[in-house]
Design a protein around this nucleic acid. Sequence first.
DNA 1: CGTCAGGTAAAAA
DNA 2: TTTTTACCTGAC
Length: 315
Amino acid sequence: MSDYNIIDLELTQLSGQTSQPPWKQENDEYREVVIVEGVPVLFKAHELNKSIEFSYEFPLNSDFHIKKSILDKKASEIFDLDFNLSKFYKYLNQDEKLAEMTSFCEGLRLFLAKDKFESILSSICSANNSIVRWTKSIDLIKEKWGKSYEFPSGTFYGVPSLDAIINSFEDDQEEFDNCDFPDISLCENNLKACGVGYRAPYMKKATEILSLEMDFGEISKMSYDEAFDTILKLPGVGPKVADCILLYGFNFREAFPSDVWIKRIVSHLYFEGKDIKVPKIREFGMEEFGDYAGYVQLYLFHYARRSGLMNELKK
DNA sequence: CGTCAGGTAAAAA
DNA sequence: TTTTTACCTGAC
């Protein structure tokens, strides 16, 4: 293996990309169930000398078998292993504003969706939220409405079906009104009980629209602009969330998700700290970085976090 | 207790 | 069209 496909697995897992919550960590492995050709497979990833290795499990009492090469290909897609990092680093080094980033984010890669619906729920849930909270919420949602799978390594939960979310209750009250619990405090099978707050109706309505009017395959085939305008129609999806969905969920690498932090960082690096509006930052990022926009956004954020620039910009 | 967090939708200017 | 404001929730 040449050194271009290095990865920092832990950094990539914990970087808060809204394709999905981090996989379940057990010793030095990260594990999660991935549906491949309709078959649930437990993917186990671990890092060895900056490269990543995978092993797989099939459900107990099943006779599924899928070729390792097919599973490896899927794993490689999720961790974006075909992306040439050293070429990207050469690109960053050409811009003195960006050159310093590589030393803080070495091996950081896109963590792409294993399930597009999961990336949409995650992205909506992440809006005006903290990483810990939205990832906890999505994990809870999967435990409550996702199918459970038994592997030699334990139980894992898949992503709920669209119908499961559409039929879910939004809050304690709605659940209480529709069930025969004696006390409302017993209600916990509802979206708000997963800690999603006011995003509950967004998640439900967005899922209804996805189910009735949108097709993941169609969105994948669209141009970036067309796809952006399309998913912007989903409730709870503004420009930032739309770009997250397109980048982490649909692999539109030209997306430059722009939030308040990216705004501060880009303003600091490229506009002498002037207060540039978020939509302008987004335009700038897309024009300046082209197909690298998604990666530059990812690196900018973690560079700022790790270098201390973020604390500096807080003031 | 008040403030804040990786925005959005709805109201107001 | 652009700029404020309210908003679940849990952590400090």
